[in-house]
C-alpha cells in the first residue's frame, strides 16, 4: 500500500506545499462513501423484507421461462438449494438400498425399494419452506405414510419418539411419536412426480410437510423408535426440535400444512 515514486521532476519541499493542498485536503469523499454505504445497508435491512417479496415475485416469473437457468443463481430466485453436512454421500439404489425399522418395536424389519413401492402410496402437494428462507411452492411428494411402517412394526408401550438416521453417515432427525403418526409425514419415494434424485436425498427421504425442511431428512436409511426425543444434527447446533413452519426458529413464514 505504501510506496515511493522515484519521480525525476520532484523537488522535495518546493512542490510539497502545492501538493499538500491536493493530497491531504479537499472534500472527505471517502468518508462520505463509507458512511453512505452503511446508511444504504441499514436502509436495505429495513426495506429488505418488502423488496425481497417483490424480487421473489419478479424472478419467480422470469425463472420459469429462462432456458439458461442463470436466474437461478440470483438471490431469491426460487428453487431448491443443495445442503449436505458431509463431504460426499454414497449412491444407493435398487440392489443396495435398505430402510431398517428397529428400536422399541415388536417386529424390527428392513425394506428394499421394491418393498416400499409395493405398499400403498400417498401423494401430498404442499409448499416446501427452508429455515434459511427459500420456499418452493406446490411441490408434490409421494410415498408411504410413516405411521403405516410404524404400525407394521408394532410400536411397544413406553415408546415416545422416533429417530431417523441417514446413509450419508452423519445426518439425523427426530420426531415425537405423535408427530410421526401424522398423515402428512411420509417416507417419500417420489418428488415432483419423478423418482427422488440423489441431490434431493434419493432414493428415499423423509417428508415432514408441516415442518421446516431440515426435518425432512435426506438419504433416509434408519427408523428407530425410542423412549425420548434425541435432537437431530442441526438441532444440536441450535435449530428447534419441534420445527413447525411459522411457529419455530424465530420465523413467521406462512404454515405449509
Amino acid at each position: 500500500m505504501v510506496g515511493r515514486a522515484l519521480v525525476p521532476g520532484a523537488r522535495g519541499w518546493s512542490n510539497r506545499r502545492v501538493d499538500s493542498e491536493s493530497e491531504d485536503h479537499g472534500t472527505p469523499v471517502g468518508r462520505r462513501v463509507v458512511l453512505g454505504m452503511i446508511g444504504l445497508g441499514a436502509a436495505g435491512v429495513a426495506a429488505g423484507p418488502y423488496l425481497q417479496r417483490g424480487v421473489d415475485a419478479a424472478l419467480g416469473a422470469v425463472a420459469g421461462k429462462d432456458p439458461t437457468g442463470l436466474t437461478g443463481l440470483l438471490p431469491g430466485a426460487g428453487g431448491f438449494r443443495y445442503y449436505s453436512v458431509t463431504a460426499s454421500v454414497p449412491h444407493r439404489g435398487e440392489t443396495d438400498y435398505r430402510l431398517t425399522v428397529d428400536g422399541l418395536v415388536d417386529r424390527p424389519g428392513s425394506y428394499r425399494l421394491a418393498d416400499l413401492r409395493a405398499l400403498p402410496q400417498d401423494r401430498l402437494v404442499r409448499d416446501v419452506q427452508c429455515v434459511t428462507g427459500w420456499r418452493v411452492p406446490h411441490t408434490p411428494f409421494e410415498g408411504v405414510r410413516l405411521s403405516r411402517l410404524l404400525d407394521a412394526a408394532g410400536v411397544r408401550p413406553g415408546a415416545r419418539a422416533v429417530r431417523f438416521t441417514c446413509f450419508d453417515g452423519a445426518y439425523s432427525e427426530s420426531l415425537t411419536l405423535e408427530q410421526a403418526r401424522r398423515s402428512d409425514v411420509l417416507v417419500a419415494l417420489r418428488m415432483q412426480d419423478a423418482g427422488i434424485s440423489h441431490a434431493h436425498g434419493g432414493p428415499v427421504r423423509l417428508y415432514v410437510a408441516p415442518m421446516y425442511f431440515y426435518k425432512s431428512a435426506k438419504w433416509l436409511s434408519g427408523i428407530t423408535v425410542t423412549d425420548k426425543v434425541e435432537p437431530g444434527y442441526w438441532e444440536r447446533y441450535g435449530y428447534d426440535v419441534d420445527g413447525w413452519v411459522g411457529r419455530s426458529n424465530g420465523r413467521d413464514d406462512a404454515p405449509t400444512a
Binding site: 445497508g41 436495505g44 435491512v45 429495513a46 426495506a47 429488505g48 423484507p49 423488496l51 425481497q52 424480487v55 440470483l74 438471490p75 431469491g76 434459511t132 428462507g133 424465530g250 420465523r251 413467521d252
Partner: peptide, 16 residues
C-alpha cells in the same frame, strides 16, 4: 426476525 430477513436480502445482493 424482520431484521434478519432484511439482513439476508442485503447480504445476498451486496455479495454479488
Amino acid at each position: 426476525l424482520v431484521w434478519r430477513t432484511g439482513a439476508g436480502f442485503v447480504h445476498d445482493w451486496l455479495a454479488l
